[in-house]
Design a protein around this nucleic acid. Sequence first.
DNA 1: CTGTTAGCGCTTTCAC
DNA 2: GTGAAAGCGCTAACAG
Lengths: 330, 330
Amino acid sequence: VPDGTRPRPPTIRDVAARAQVSLGTASNALSGRAVSAEARAAVEEAARVLGWRANPLARGLRGARSGVLGLVLPSIASAFHAGFAEALEDSAEARGLLLMQASARGDPAQEKARIEALLDRRVDGLVLLPSSAPEAGLAALTASGTATVLVNVPKADPRFDTISLDEAGAMRAALAHLAARGHRRVLFLARYPKLAVTAARIAALKRHRRIATDVLAVGADHALFDGELPRRLRARARPTALIASNSILALWALRVLRREAMAMPGDIALLSFDAADWTDLTDPPLTVLRQPVAAMADAAAELLTSRLAQPGLPPRHRLLRMDLLPGGST
Amino acid sequence: VPDGTRPRPPTIRDVAARAQVSLGTASNALSGRAVSAEARAAVEEAARVLGWRANPLARGLRGARSGVLGLVLPSIASAFHAGFAEALEDSAEARGLLLMQASARGDPAQEKARIEALLDRRVDGLVLLPSSAPEAGLAALTASGTATVLVNVPKADPRFDTISLDEAGAMRAALAHLAARGHRRVLFLARYPKLAVTAARIAALKRHRRIATDVLAVGADHALFDGELPRRLRARARPTALIASNSILALWALRVLRREAMAMPGDIALLSFDAADWTDLTDPPLTVLRQPVAAMADAAAELLTSRLAQPGLPPRHRLLRMDLLPGGST
DNA sequence: CTGTTAGCGCTTTCAC
DNA sequence: GTGAAAGCGCTAACAG
């Protein structure tokens, strides 16, 4: 880009000069404070002509609102997270806020780094989908005093506004759905059983009476899964239904089932958390538990904006339900 | 969050005082400029003890590097975009840069707004996956002089560094693949035929000799697609193969094929741009053209960092190829 | 090499 | 209401 003398962007000083008012009055006018009608008109006109844009860095430095919301999530590659991010961007924009997002790869150290980077940039509020060990990041958050919403937490946290999904209720609904179809042995497929959300699902699973349940937890190890699931499917007391803790695991399971030439729902039933765009396209379509992404995003934006308006509010908790969408796979 | 007297975060002034050096020396030490070994040690120790963190707003205000890269893309909900965003975040982090992303929903006005918001915050560089009418945004970009990479553009732009995919080559590969399997009539499914990338694909399609080609363009109108595709599939000179311009369209097509009880590849062949996580899970697995997401992201980061180091570089252009992954669907 | 000083663009007292 | 002036935290020029 050839430079030469790039005309520097106009400052509020330029605007004040052109409107023939003092710098302070220009500032007041542009930030919607009390000024005379004439002064306001002159300043706005000058700003328009000059193409003035407020410099958020300077504004933030002096301690005002930045108009930016931050979002930190474990990954953007899952349908659930991408959907939430997109919905949150909508909700934020509807409230005149910009969203800046960063992903943490499920790594607590990166999570903390991302949170701090956003805090350093003086975001007005932060939405966090916590990793498995979020304490370091949460400590930075409380220390900063920034308005924060924790999304997808197992239970309310007295330090923050929180939004949870009714994991236990969803699991109960899934089990009831399967029980009604005659299933008595269910295998739950999970990646990280220690993850709070997953743990809540497992707890609800264990609490169930009519169905014998078991858990296959494989971490990120695809190979382990590919080896272990077929073994479980051939065991004596083999499960008649699988519940996948997310759509990735459902994919993995589908691959195994195809390789084993097992048909749904005859040979085995499959039910999955997460409604991805492909889940109604399998043969037969998958029965899924769908998270109310848009409602979650809107609740997050609402909690944040209300707290910005009224910082003294006590921590609030919102519990949202998932929908069980029956497909042919169960 | 109960406040009381939250201890304000330490400034460089506090660090200087504790290290018994001047503010300037502290700044020099902390920004890695020339200072004596003792001074450096004292300052670093003080910063560590105090838990000092540079305030990027103040830093940016004075005109230094912000250490932040911006990413503006049309949407995060597609596998391709999400994959690119994630890969770019990796590439940026490997170079010590933070990535801030915002999506524009394919709307040129929002695109411009997002670009300006990022520029206002003094990002060091910006990666843009342009919408169909990016000129307004591009003008803001040239005016600001910020290092920029345009990704997924139909051709090199003399004002920016650019990264393109070889759309024509990919389309030729797809057609050759189909021709070799005896197909002579192909229908290309697109949403926005005017979109530059799509237009490039269509141009390559029309140029082909041995195969009769047609285009079904439906915009975002799912219902139109559901009505029109079956009609085309029942016409006299009906196509024997479909090429979907992205994985969403492939999904839509799969739904129609199932409803029409047409099997792949016997009744009809299907080939799709975009390798989504589910594309090898359909029955039979889909033949897809895969974009080299990681390579694209890394090229973008590389172009940006090299330009930051050397602003005078002439605009560069990178052309990357897609891979044709044969599945059973063709 | 070090310390002093002048801003970056804006908001915010505080007199008038 | 309005204007003058004092910073926000930091970097960069400049003298020592």
